[in-house]
């Protein structure tokens, strides 16, 4: 378990943003980097990050379990994080969540058997004017409709096929 050369360079860049001895501040960004490279945060990954930043492993576990974006279990290649809070709810997010679940044959919290998709419900992502919406990877998919959901699923399947 080790970061790529490029990621290690990024880690030292991040640490340099803070005063001497305050490298703990780099923990959140470095966990993001780890998740980018390894897909999720295993104990082994977190222990590696702890060693990299001279922290006790429990300090990393405490932080990783606090923030909702860190995956503490493996997730599918495409993680659908659909907002369900008030403003999205009044614009029909419940139907969208149900529709995605139906299309993929899973309920929120589950991953498809082929390991491609995970469906997760999340709380407000700050895109209330563009509801209903979800996060997919780095970006938001907004103004969701059933047709758009179909197209997104199709797009993901095509991408996965092209990368294999």
């Amino acid at each position: 378990m080790e970061f790529s050369e490029e990621k290690l360079k990024k880690v030292s860049e991040i640490i340099a943003r803070y005063p001497e001895g305050k490298q703990k501040s780099a923990l959140l960004p470095v966990l993001h980097l780890a998740q980018e490279q390894f897909g999720w945060l295993s104990v082994e990954t977190m222990d590696y990050v702890a060693a990299l930043l001279s922290l006790e492993p429990v300090e990393v576990y405490e932080v990783a379990t606090f923030y909702s974006m860190y995956n503490l279990e493996p997730v599918g290649k495409y993680l659908f994080e659909v907002c369900q809070t008030g403003p999205c709810m009044i614009n029909g997010s419940d139907d969208i969540i149900a529709y995605i679940g139906e299309r993929l044959g899973i309920t929120p919290g589950e991953t498809t058997a082929d390991g491609l998709f995970t469906l997760k419900t999340v709380e407000c992502l700050g895109a209330c004017g563009y509801a209903p919406m979800m996060q997919l990877g780095k970006h938001y998919r907004e103004h969701l409709t059933k047709d758009k959901v179909d197209a997104i699923i199709e797009e993901c399947r095509n991408n996965a096929a092209a990368n294999n």
Partner: peptide
């Protein structure tokens, strides 16, 4: 000026929680 990303916690909008988070701790 540096940009730091949080990781999913509304509470970090509270200024002292934000500071804790920026220090690499729980918010």
């Amino acid at each position: 000026i540096y940009v730091q990303r949080g990781a999913g916690a509304y509470i970090c909008g509270e200024e002292t929680a934000l500071i804790e988070s920026l220090e690499g701790k729980r918010g």
